[in-house]
Amino acid sequence: MSRPLRKLLDKAGMAVCVLLLVSPALLFFIWMLSLSLKFEIDNGAYPPILIPDRFAWKNYTTIFEGNSFLLYFWNSLIVTGAATLFALVVGVPAGYGIARMKAHKSAVVIMIARMTPGLSFLIPLFLLFQWLGLLGTLWPQIIIHLVVTVPIVIWIMIGYFETTPMELEEAAMVDGATRWQIFAKVALPIAKPGIVVAFILSVIFSWNNFVFGIVLASRETRTLPVAVYNMLSFEQVSWGPLAAAALVVTLPVLILTVAAQRQIVAGLTAGAVKGG
């Protein structure tokens, strides 16, 4: 076989391979989109229809009408936002301290926290929140989401600060900086990419969290995943609006994933963290 032809075949083979690889993900989300844009009749058709003759845009409007969806969106935003911000405020300095003290053993606690099933945090904290009378507010969820966000942030920041050269901080020491000035003016600005990674992953895993919500959320304090799940438990629910709701819930995350895939990949391979 001639060389150019062989090269071409190699390339075509590789393209087919890659298409095969991404197709489960791609087809799934395309089907999800299709479900969310079809009327009940089209969703129940056999053989299934991929692109319907008329789009059911009203699937999207109905979810915002009947189900206090905006309130749940807002709840999700508050819980994820607060849990992530708080995790960054305490976790970034902690990652710095642990990295500089070379206290790698303390990272074991973070590892074990990562291994512990979310439910085993839930039982004691549920009782604690009940005793404190916090149930019915967003506080229990914000606090328990720290179980997810704080370890992610600390873990990623330890890894990041360990790779930043000590020489820079020594230079700052000689230049007359105090330890707080070194942290604020040298270490922190250099660690910005690491903070971005920690932020993104913390947001995603907090946003996606479901198990804490089903136990701790009341009707007014549901986050989006819980709200979507509750839509399912209504009998006779139609597929169109349900798929539309599911898509709305996960869309912010999907956009973030594709937009920041480089940071996400870096963060996941560094710590291989996952929440809950």
């Binding site: 890659v18 690889l21 991404v22 489960p24 993900a25 791609l26 799934f28 989300f29 089907w31 999800m32 479900l35 995603i204 946003w207 996606n208 479901f210 989006l224 995943p225 819980v226 979507v228 799940y229 399912l232 597929w239 349900l242 798929a243 599911a246 898509l247 819930v249 996960t250 995350v253 999907l254 973030l256 994933t257 594709v258 895939q261 480089r262 996400i264 990949v265």
Partner: peptide
């Protein structure tokens, strides 16, 4: 990069949301 981004989507997507769609499938 784009392909990797698509490939990674399933694990970043909200589990409840994708579980609902799988239930339908």
């Amino acid at each position: 990069g784009l392909l990797r981004g698509i490939f990674v989507m399933p694990m970043m997507a909200t589990p409840v949301a994708i579980a609902l769609v799988w239930t339908m499938m």
